[in-house]
Computed example of a mutant assay.
Amino acid sequence: MLGPAEIRALAGELDVRPTKKLGQNFVHDPNTVRRIVDLAGVGAGDVVLEVGPGLGSLTLGLLGSSADVVAVEIDPVLAGRLSETVAERGGSAAGRLTVLTADALRLAAADLPRAPTAIVANLPYNVAVPVVLHLLAELPSLRTGMVMVQTEVADRMAAGPGGRVYGVPSVKLAWYGNARKVAPVPRAVFWPVPNVDSALVAFERAGQRAESERVAVFAAVDAAFSQRRKTLRAALAGWAGSADRAGEILVAAGVDPRARGERLTVEDFTRIAAAREAPCPQGARETPPTV
């Protein structure tokens, strides 16, 4: 494990100055690392994808669980040193580590040596949600996850319908499975100390769905929350082609056109997307035809 002294020594050796642009806040508390690995529940037979390994604190903890680790690091200086750090401190576990110098937002399944089964990461705050959604879409082998993110982001990721913070990230993550906020993480375990609080979010994939269905549902979600104060009939007008057509689609899906997106579940949005593609039956008009 890497403590505060080791983290600072490595940073000094590499002349690394943590930047806000890359969201670099390095974990230096071994107990926090052990807790993350334990809560993630990974072990022998798992292939863990770690995004943003930094100086290697969490990487060493994950390798200590007997899992294989694929570490994706955008900073070439940090990526270049990680294998050496693990070889120095992890012994034979170094043979279970693969380091890729890459941007996780552009990562493709073909870039990885093996299909990962879990993602465990201290994610940069500014790209946490896009990274998780991209990886879930790109890597169907991912079954579970445990990510450390800003507390406000964790709240949005795990929110349920009707809450103030329920929105696009909440619905899109629910499309893939169940996300839940697990535990807070104190600021003092990071170097440099961030000016925001952090939390752990756990994720379990529910199953596989067709990519075409995901695209259709996500388009409906984006439209509904682009004007979240408006009724769905108004918010979905552009997406549907007109407010009248939006009303017809919503009625056909069993959703009140006067409702707002923040009240809908992912299943509601799935029905709405399906109804848009289906012929609108005569009986599903928003208002009865005049005679």
Results as ranks from 00 to 15, higher is better:
145 G>D: 02
115 A>C: 03
90 G>A: 11
286 E>V: 15
13 E>H: 11
1 M>C: 01
231 T>D: 00
29 D>N: 03
110 A>R: 04
229 R>V: 02
141 S>P: 13
163 G>L: 14
155 D>L: 03
188 A>L: 00
7 I>W: 07
206 A>C: 13
118 A>Y: 03
211 E>Y: 02
144 T>M: 08
148 M>C: 00
282 Q>H: 11
282 Q>P: 14
196 V>Y: 00
81 R>P: 12
90 G>L: 06
175 W>T: 07
227 Q>A: 11
43 G>F: 03
39 L>R: 13
244 D>A: 14
261 G>Q: 06
13 E>N: 00
251 V>T: 08
100 L>I: 03
192 P>T: 02
54 G>W: 10
57 S>Y: 02
23 G>C: 05
72 V>E: 02
173 L>P: 15
115 A>V: 09
83 S>H: 13
156 R>C: 07
26 F>I: 08
259 A>N: 09
142 L>A: 11
6 E>P: 00
186 P>Y: 05
180 R>T: 13
34 R>I: 01
289 P>Q: 09
47 V>P: 11
231 T>H: 00
151 T>W: 10
197 D>M: 02
242 S>C: 06
231 T>E: 01
183 A>I: 01
75 D>V: 06
34 R>Y: 01
20 K>I: 00
25 N>I: 02
240 A>K: 06
43 G>T: 09
164 R>L: 15
258 R>G: 12
61 G>K: 01
28 H>A: 07
242 S>H: 14
208 Q>E: 15
13 E>S: 02
130 P>M: 13
262 E>D: 06
47 V>T: 14
141 S>C: 12
130 P>Q: 11
260 R>T: 03
135 L>Q: 13
201 V>P: 03
222 D>V: 06
257 P>A: 09
117 T>K: 04
8 R>P: 08
164 R>P: 07
246 A>D: 05
46 D>A: 13
210 A>L: 04
273 A>V: 11
31 N>Q: 12
122 N>H: 09
7 I>Y: 05
235 A>S: 09
182 V>Y: 06
289 P>I: 12
197 D>H: 07
278 A>T: 12
32 T>H: 04
108 A>L: 13
176 Y>R: 14
261 G>S: 03
175 W>D: 09
185 V>W: 06
41 G>W: 04
42 V>E: 02
94 A>K: 12
177 G>N: 11
126 N>P: 01
270 T>R: 15
189 V>F: 05
180 R>M: 07
9 A>K: 11
145 G>N: 14
217 V>C: 07
267 E>T: 08
120 V>Y: 04
143 R>E: 13
168 V>Y: 12
129 V>F: 08
213 E>F: 08
257 P>H: 12
6 E>G: 02
265 T>P: 14
107 L>I: 07
282 Q>R: 15
149 V>Y: 06
65 S>I: 05
198 S>A: 05
268 D>C: 10
198 S>P: 00
59 T>S: 09
263 R>C: 05
229 R>N: 00
25 N>V: 03
21 K>P: 03
25 N>M: 01
100 L>G: 06
290 T>S: 08
98 T>F: 10
285 R>P: 06
181 K>Q: 09
274 A>H: 05
255 V>M: 09
232 L>P: 10
154 A>C: 01
55 L>I: 14
24 Q>C: 05
98 T>Y: 09
183 A>C: 03
59 T>I: 08
141 S>H: 14
210 A>M: 05
235 A>M: 07
242 S>E: 09
229 R>Y: 04
205 R>I: 15
138 E>I: 05
83 S>M: 04
171 V>E: 15
16 V>I: 15
